[in-house]
Amino acid sequence: MTKLSPLGLVSALLAFSPSFALAQIRGSATFTGNDHTGGTCSLFNYTLPAGISGTGIGPSNWATGGKCGSCLQVRGPNGSTKVMVVDSCPSCLENRLNLSEDAFVKIADKADGIVDVEFDVVSCGLNSPLIIRNKIGTSRWFFSMQVLNANYPVTDLEVSADDNRTWESTVRQDYNFFEKEDKSGFGKDRVSVRVSCSNGNQVIIPNVSMESEVQIVAPVNC
């Protein structure tokens, strides 16, 4: 069962000059089933936002899990739809998307099987805040944390174990959890977490428990 952190957390959104701009990509799309929870991005117990379906993404755009949770606007022969990257597609050709079936039928006829598309990374457009979640086994001796529900791609997750005086970066794993490079912890039961997004904004969440499977809903998104 998911455990919730104590109330009273304070979160700050630090705004910088946005520099978020990604080129439109020409590629292709096919489709698979609609279940997003078993994908490489580890989005178990996470409900996709209303109006957003899931997609797998091929090796040329996977970025070692760096696109997990990102939203793409996909344009096909019959229309356009917004999807969230929920899985990798190791067998996909360059710039290939493996859309969920419900997304594919919004842009093409199901009988087509594979179609040409254009897509780019866009804001998910969520009014709800981002979420951070500890992996099972997380403790003061082992750090593993996931960011969910971010409006823009998450570029970095840093941790402070000394009341925000210094920050240490973590490394995003293929399975979409951020961990210390040496697979250890920060030696504290509570830390501050700073999440950076591709639009230049950061969210700081203090007093985060290092207890296994703790989930925290921040008051803001990036």
Rank of each mutant, 00 (worst) to 15 (best):
A150Q: 04
S19A: 13
R140Q: 11
N176L: 04
V217R: 09
V159G: 04
I205T: 09
N151D: 02
A29M: 07
D35V: 13
E213Q: 14
G185N: 01
T2W: 13
V117I: 06
N127Y: 00
W141R: 12
P153M: 03
V154C: 04
L9N: 08
S196N: 11
G39A: 08
A108T: 04
S88L: 02
T37V: 10
D109S: 12
P129H: 02
C89Q: 10
C197E: 00
L72W: 13
T32M: 06
S17H: 03
L93H: 08
P59N: 04
K183P: 00
G76E: 02
M1Y: 12
G200Q: 01
A12T: 14
A108V: 05
D189R: 07
T81Q: 05
A218H: 00
S5C: 14
V195G: 00
C89F: 15
F119S: 00
E181L: 14
G33Y: 10
G66T: 05
E179G: 03
S184K: 14
P18H: 01
A12I: 15
I131R: 03
L14N: 09
T2N: 06
L43C: 08
G38D: 08
E168T: 15
V154R: 04
T30F: 03
D174E: 11
T55M: 07
G8K: 05
S11G: 12
S17W: 00
L72R: 02
A111G: 10
L99S: 03
D35Y: 13
F44M: 10
G200Y: 09
M210P: 02
C68K: 00
T166C: 05
K67H: 03
D35M: 05
A12F: 15
N134H: 14
V171L: 10
D182F: 15
T37G: 02
T47K: 09
G185S: 01
L22Q: 15
S169W: 14
N221F: 05
A111P: 09
I25T: 15
V147E: 01
D182R: 04
Y46N: 02
V214I: 15
S212E: 08
D162Q: 04
A63K: 14
E94Y: 08
N201F: 09
W141A: 13
G65Q: 05
L72H: 11
A50S: 12
N164F: 00
G27I: 07
G38Q: 12
T138N: 01
N34Q: 09
K82D: 08
N176G: 01
V117Y: 06
A21M: 07
A29T: 08
T170N: 03
D182L: 06
V214S: 02
P129F: 05
S80T: 15
N151W: 00
G33H: 08
L43W: 12
N151Q: 03
S212T: 15
A15T: 14
I52T: 06
T138D: 00
L13K: 15
G39F: 05
N61R: 13
K110E: 02
C89W: 15
K106H: 07
P153C: 11
E213I: 12
N45M: 11
G65W: 08
G69E: 07
S160L: 05
D109G: 15
T170L: 04
G76A: 07
F104S: 03
G125N: 01
E179Y: 03
N98R: 11
A21Y: 13
R172E: 04
I25G: 06
